[in-house]
């Protein structure tokens, strides 16, 4: 079939132009992300396993039990997750994937952090401004329906191979829920509370910081949870462009047809996912 419009060619031209003209920007981003990832993973690995385990256990317990930390009810609520954290992390450690797991955690945290830093303000903008919302909405739809592999192509193009393109592709993939849930959260703040604030002379800034964001916080935290899970689900794909961690072990397992390796590292990802999900979800479920 003959092609009438060569859309891909124009996109290629556009991306080429971007690459050439803003190379300083890409380099800066690359440097920034690489530096952060390297240092953070080094930091995580410098913590002895037992100490790290203890920290995660405490965090998980606090997330679940909250104010009842020192009571019996707290133990009832947090006990299950604590047991899972201990067994799960020990399993990863014992299987010999601790280093990879920390690398993955680093990538996920960095990507999720960037996605939130970008996504929450965009979400606020979308909630406040109709025009912005009309523009942002289809872009988010586009981002979410586009197969994740496609993001790898420009990522490689701008940042060659390594952790950075992996993080960038992950950010793009996991950004939408941060925007959507922030916007949803702010929109569902009851109008009467906002009006009350206005009647007492609140500025727009005060309304945002003192009323809207606190009331939207549970929804925004659900967004945080979703962002982290999506970021984690990208680790295998990101490893295709050279990102390190458990994802790359799974990828090796696929390439070498190594069932043992693939299963073990896959299980590691699942364990990380469950721990991160339960902890962030508990924070989201807590009332503001």
């Amino acid at each position: 079939m003959s092609r009438i419009i060569d859309l891909g060619k124009y996109i290629e031209i556009g991306i080429n132009a971007l690459e050439e003209n803003f190379s300083f920007l890409w380099r800066a981003i690359d440097d920034g992300i690489s530096w952060t990832v390297d240092n953070l993973s080094e930091l995580l690995l410098s913590i002895p396993f037992v100490v790290f385990l203890l920290i995660v256990v405490l965090l998980a317990y606090y997330a679940k039990a909250g104010k009842m930390m020192f009571k019996k009810e707290g133990l009832k609520k947090g006990g299950g997750l604590v047991a899972f954290v201990v067994i799960g992390l020990f399993l990863i450690y014992a299987m010999g994937y601790w280093e990879d797991a920390m690398c993955t955690t680093t990538l996920v945290l960095v990507a999720a952090f960037i996605a939130l830093v970008l996504g929450i303000p965009i979400g606020i903008l979308a909630a406040k401004n109709r025009t912005a919302d009309i523009i942002i909405r289809p872009i988010l739809d586009f981002m979410q329906t586009m197969p994740a592999f496609v993001y790898l192509i420009p990522a490689i193009f701008f940042f060659s191979v390594g952790d950075t393109p992996g993080v960038v592709a992950t950010v793009i993939f996991s950004l939408p829920p941060a925007v959507r849930l922030t916007s949803l959260g702010i929109r569902s703040v009851p109008n009467d509370v906002v009006e009350a604030g206005r009647a007492f002379g609140a500025t727009e800034k005060q309304i945002l910081y003192k009323i809207e964001l606190p009331l939207a916080m549970p929804t925004i935290l659900t967004g945080v949870n979703q962002v982290i899970l999506l970021a984690l689900s990208m680790v295998v794909i990101a490893s295709m462009v050279g990102a390190r961690g458990l994802g790359s072990v799974v990828y090796q397992g696929i390439q070498q047809n190594d069932i043992a390796k693939g299963f073990e590292s896959g299980l590691g990802i699942v364990i990380l996912a469950i721990i991160l999900d339960r902890i962030t979800q508990s924070f989201a479920n807590k009332k503001g």
């Binding site: 009851p190 009467d192 009350a196 009647a199 007492f200 009331l215």
Partner: peptide
């Protein structure tokens, strides 16, 4: 300033901050 210092308002639906 008028809203802050001269007039205050009470609402049908209270408009209290739950947090």
């Amino acid at each position: 300033n008028i809203r802050r210092f001269e007039m205050s308002m009470v609402f049908q639906t209270f408009g209290l901050l739950p947090h």
